[in-house]
Amino acid sequence: MGDSLYNKIGGEAAVNAAVDIFYRKVLSDARISGFFEGVDMDRQASKQKAFLTLAFGGPNHYTGEDMRRGHAHLVAKGLNDSHFDAVMENLGATLTELNVPAELIAQAAAIAESTRNDVLGK
């Protein structure tokens, strides 16, 4: 675990630092903010934390099937590749803002990217 991506990025402290920045970006991104509105902010923030932990390769129990089920109601509302790309962009921008080295950003992006088909229910 010592040299996992999660630990290299900075573990839970990094997730905590990233969650506010990422969530602010998502809420102010008109392309996707609609999916995140109207939900209790605290609950939503804890889900952002789950998302980032997953992208950083940290401890989580999510399966592809969970991702499929967890986003099915959003797919029904029109969630598609363009929204997925927007989330990827916000993830990259968040990590850049936190001065995470480019090669680690690329690894996190690859993990997130690997969930695309499940998230989009393809």
Partner: peptide, 10 residues
């Protein structure tokens, strides 16, 4: 929402 955007952590 507004205090969060003003920089307070969730």
């Amino acid at each position: 929402k507004k205090t969060f955007f003003a920089g307070a952590s969730m």
